[in-house]
Design a binder for these strands. Sequence first.
DNA 1: ACAATAGTGTCTTTCAGACACTATGTG
DNA 2: CACATAGTGTCTGAAAGACACTATTGT
Lengths: 232, 232
Amino acid sequence: MKHSHTTPDVSVDIVLLTLDDGRLKVALHRRERSPGKGSLALPGGYVHVDEDASMEATAYRVLRDKTGLVPRYLEQLRTFGGPDRDPRGWSVAVAHVALIPHAELSEAGAGVFHFYDVDELPELVFDHAGQVQEAVQRVRNKASYSTLPCWLLPELFTLTQLQGIYEQIFGETVSRGTFRSRLGIKVGELTPGEAADEADILIATDQFQGGNQRPARLFRVNRLSLFKRAFW
Amino acid sequence: MKHSHTTPDVSVDIVLLTLDDGRLKVALHRRERSPGKGSLALPGGYVHVDEDASMEATAYRVLRDKTGLVPRYLEQLRTFGGPDRDPRGWSVAVAHVALIPHAELSEAGAGVFHFYDVDELPELVFDHAGQVQEAVQRVRNKASYSTLPCWLLPELFTLTQLQGIYEQIFGETVSRGTFRSRLGIKVGELTPGEAADEADILIATDQFQGGNQRPARLFRVNRLSLFKRAFW
DNA sequence: ACAATAGTGTCTTTCAGACACTATGTG
DNA sequence: CACATAGTGTCTGAAAGACACTATTGT
């Protein structure tokens, strides 16, 4: 027997972020159905009780069905609920944050989405603007003490690229030396390409990216690492 | 018109933590209904769409109805969902963490609950054991870089009491001087009792707690402050 | 006076950050 | 060789931690 209270609707929303031209952008699409038909909204959908194993599974399925792509990083943000967020009545939305490198987006022909600078948000439907704001805050905060920004870059990247992201996010510059020692970079001792120490934050490859000057070593992120001390 | 998918049940669970005899304890009660009748469980309940304004409001109402008390601190933890966590089928639980000083508990005649050491958990119903584990992890982690532990103490407390909690949680000792300078304590400059600087982490009162020795000044927490550097 | 705990000052060590120097590619 | 960027070493100043010294109560 079911309980006697009215059950609210449960949906999953996804704040899909990427780095385009040095700016954080969020994926939005125009709603095809009412309510809010024609307005900009986050991708989202309802739980399919016959195929989803968890809230995160629902989020992955929604993205896969809409665009065919799998984000490099996904985590729950917060669950929003209340009587006013959807005109149809009391509703629940389990919000997620997802990160993806910009390169993977253009390939996957994800023309479904339009990308907007998170610091110049247009009008959004329901409480989606608030969800984006919280997501960006979470990402910026977590970036200050973890390797989270790596998931916004291609799988292989140079230290200068990575440093650029951190400086982008925090609006401050740091000397190369300081930056590298923070990440525990000591290339001289590593055997590049070798499976590095589990404790290492980044893994050095034996590939290089050259321009008109000395080529830079390419790195790969080992895992989501938390720094003991916040960056800035 | 409603969507066509089956809507899962939505409930709110609360991991209510307190500090008893220097140990973190969680509030559990025995279920009076099936499924899991007679087993230990977290307090929780369904959203009342006619009276709750948010998920947090539901959590506060559930606690108030069950025990009459209002926690000093409450935040969302994570939303658990899946086909197997409840034998009745796909279900969603929005888990919360709540903190309350032990003193307020005994007063409020909250005989509803039994308290268990979080490091010696008994068998729990559904996925509640996992919820407790995640909650404790969140609290311990947040304690390492914030004033969160203050909400486990009475409103007025001495610095030695506070230091004791931090040492309890991390299992390491710290010299008084280091601890006080971390909190930015400089009593000499404060006008005790005065509304202190907004930036101050703790507020000095002009009250003291005496034993058989020099009395210790009582402090009150200003707000939830985050330290730039983690404690341990 | 003495015991016990509160509160403060100082010294040492460690580490973050600035900066300069070396290395290695291109034209 | 000039130039540009990658990568490393060194020096300095600030802050964390250890420890000892002073302060204030009760007995």
